[in-house]
């Protein structure tokens, strides 16, 4: 270690904490660096002697009361309540999102086009709900798994008069089957 390196390091440690061994070894044999350390230490001691008057002038109890008043209003005191409210809020949010998704999905299902043509009126929605889904399944199943005319014949035998009337009114069944 040369003197320049030593003095650079003395700036870091001088007057604050014990010197690293390498520095001490250099100082043992270097008068100039010892003088430099003395100078730094003296300046440091002088500066440190300047006690902070503001901290000494503050009224202790008034300061503590100020902190206590603010702590009384701080989040920590309200932590249990805040946690409870937070959990309720989380639960409400989850229920709200689930509800919106459920309603949204039902709405999307209803509003999605059937053969590219969405129902045009509310009446159409109600009419669709009155349709016997079991019958429609049978219709689709039979229609897709049998021969065309045979399926049509059997289909007409299976449905009631009311259901046939409904199918005729809404799906132009006769044109499809005949």
């Amino acid at each position: 270690m040369n003197c320049r390196e030593c003095q650079d390091e003395l700036l870091l440690y001088g007057g604050v904490e014990a010197l690293p061994e390498e520095l001490s070894n250099h100082l043992d044999s270097c008068e100039a660096c010892r003088r430099y350390l003395d100078e730094i230490s003296e300046i440091a001691a002088r500066f440190r002697a300047d006690s902070d008057l503001v901290s000494e002038s503050v009224d202790v109890e008034r300061f503590v009361e100020g902190v206590e008043a603010r702590i009384g209003r701080s989040r920590v005191d309200r932590l249990p309540a805040v946690t409870w409210v937070r959990h309720v809020a989380y639960a409400a949010s989850i229920l709200l999102v689930a509800g919106i998704m459920s309603v949204g999905l039902r709405y999307v299902d209803r509003d999605s086009p059937v053969n590219g043509v969405p129902p045009s009126t509310d009446q159409d929605y109600y009419a669709e709900e009155e349709l016997d889904e079991g019958v429609v399944d049978i219709v689709i199943s039979d229609f897709s798994s049998r021969g065309f005319l045979e399926a049509g014949d059997e289909l007409l035998n299976d449905v009631t008069e009311d259901e046939l009337k409904y199918l005729e009114e809404n799906f132009d069944v006769r044109n499809l089957l005949l």
Binding site: V54, S55, V58, V64
Partner: peptide, 27 residues
């Protein structure tokens, strides 16, 4: 707070050099 207020105020005051601000920052 009683034990540590003076060193903390001294620190904040040396940093901001304004009495009221230093006390506020310490609190």
């Amino acid at each position: 707070v009683r034990m540590m207020m003076r060193p903390v105020i001294a620190l904040t005051h040396r940093m901001v050099r304004d009495r009221e601000a230093a006390i506020d920052l310490a609190q």
